[in-house]
Design a protein around this nucleic acid. Sequence first.
DNA 1: GATAGGGTTGTTTTT
DNA 2: CAACCCTATC
Length: 708
Amino acid sequence: MKNGKDHTEEEYVFEFYEDMEQNFEAEASSMPNKYNDVKFEENLNDEQLKIINNIKGPMLIIAGAGSGKTRTITYAVAKLLTSGVHPNEIMLVTFTNKAAKEMIKRVELLLGKRPKGIWAGTFHSMANRFIRRYSQTLGLKPNYNIMDETDARALMRLAMDKVGVSEMEERFPTSKMAKNILSYSINCDKTIREVILWKYSDFDDDKIEKKLKKAYTRYEKKKEEDGLLDFDDLLLFWNRLLDEKIVARMIARKIKYILVDEYQDTNHIQAEIIHKIARLNPERNIMVVGDDAQSIYAFRGANFKNILDFEDMYKDCKKYKITYNYRSVPEILTLANDSIRHNQFQHQKEMKPTRPSGAQPFLVNVADGEEQAKFIANQILRLREEGYKLNQIAILCRAGRHSLKIEQELQARNIPYVVRAGVGFFEKAHIKDALVHLRIIENPFDEIAWSRIFKMIPDLGKTSGAKIFSKISQSEAPLEKLFEKGFFSITMKGERIPSKGSRNLLNHITSLRNFSSNDNPSEILNEINKLIKDYIKSTYENSDERLEDLKELAIYSQNYATVQQFLETLSLNRNNIESKTVLAGNKSEIEEPVVISTIHRAKGLEWRAVFIPMLCQNFFPSSRVKGDQEAIEEERRVFYVAITRAKDQLYLISPALLQSWRGYQTADLSLFVEELDPKVYRKSSVKIKPKPNKESGFCTADELLEGK
DNA sequence: GATAGGGTTGTTTTT
DNA sequence: CAACCCTATC
């Protein structure tokens, strides 16, 4: 593997994995690595320097947006390494695996050498490493597959069906709700009853609760039988592992320093895990970094009160604040502060601007979604003329679907863009169609995977599928056994001859019989692509595009040695590949695209210019929060995160009229804009009237621009 | 009894 | 774009 900074993303993924594997084998080496001299004093401010010179014991760091949080963590890691701490004594927990890789990359640049062996990644990916290693201790199949949320929901549906829940006449939670309830219960350490009362009080009923619990039992059992784990299981089993004395002692011997980024977005079980590890070590070197104002994952059980609890839990904890903002012009910070002060449940803290004065944020009222899209496109072109590169511009949406019209407009104007929202590449139907074949090679007991394959086979429906899977599940056989003569022959309608569907299935998968989970996934995928080509062609409208995607997938998978490595990387890094990139026409030079993203995925990132569309009541904040103060505050934090991504220019855009399922509908200005002090933004003085009466006082976005 | 096809519905945010 | 329900067909 190459050294230096010219790694491709894929190589990092691969090396990353290797490092983790080595961690289990390597003892902390007594030979400290030779690193560059790092100029800590020159590159950090006083607040930051104080932190990295005091890394010991429990530390709580409150870091405002744009305060150089990543820089501080990076230098902290560098500090530890240069003072002789071995890489595999450090655990760095980040919010995404991408963030982990980027931080390691930055540490590498500082040290002039790649620090091999740091435990770095998300809670889920690290949990996976430990669980794979100790699957036997936990009584799990070593080749378990990790389900994504869609799969987990499908399995929950299956469990509910088996328990006979969907046939009930009374109202009952959907499989999605049922899965959510279970998920909250695990992540927040609450009973099912408590979760129901907390989030789904409509279903507060003994009978429902009883049935639900029955479905859960079935769900758990099914996962065990099929060798499946959901995201929550990863945390659950890691946590359980830490109660095993021998394993815990082994982990304690290795990990001496824990650093947790984005601590405001951890939930109860995650906090429990790191505290268990921290307490295993007499020095309890645990550093958590976060900003309660940026906690936006409550829907996943995150609780920014973890930050407050931290101080209670470690009475001797040292508390630091880093407050200088290096990102945004003071005008943008003023608006951000003016917004977040409306939140009651909040640490009071003040961001100190360091940049000279710049442009005031704009509040742009537009007539409707089309005008909004036009305005954004116009303004992007204008910014480009002013010297902005397109990739320094972002459109940040509350929900993925808010960007549809904007995308169309950018396409029409030949403005290249990339979308980081909605269904990711690996969740697309055709990609999953291919991947489920890999899943059954890895683990043939995975019913969710099989049933997706069954759907692709002509003359094979639900009933036959269930019969075939029941044979598979009883066979206790690896994949090759399934090809023994007559295995798939099931009798239908009392006839002796194998059904058409089962013969089709056998034909379909026969060419996979010689592959095993240890083979290179790309070779297998090439074969799979041949198998499903006709199905893709006949099922999907844009099959050419999809077949291209499948080729891409096979190429991408070359970076992984085994099926297992490939599959679990996909499960745990789902948003690493851009879901859609539209490049401008036939331009010879490729221009870096504008970014369209959900706000949630924009966390930790920054752009020179940021557009926030759809600032209307019932869109942002979303209609679901009605009256719920905590939910409104969460939405306001989402707004705050969006604002603080902007370095130089910020555009708040609010359409007056929106197209809903039937016709146009007036939309009120978002509470979050309404409540702002009008002094913190510049508003177009032009009054805009709804489209139907498009006469006096009404203007288009183009005219609005001229008038500015 | 089982499968295929049509038409309708409803979707925040993500590991 | 998947999950549902209904109807036509084998």
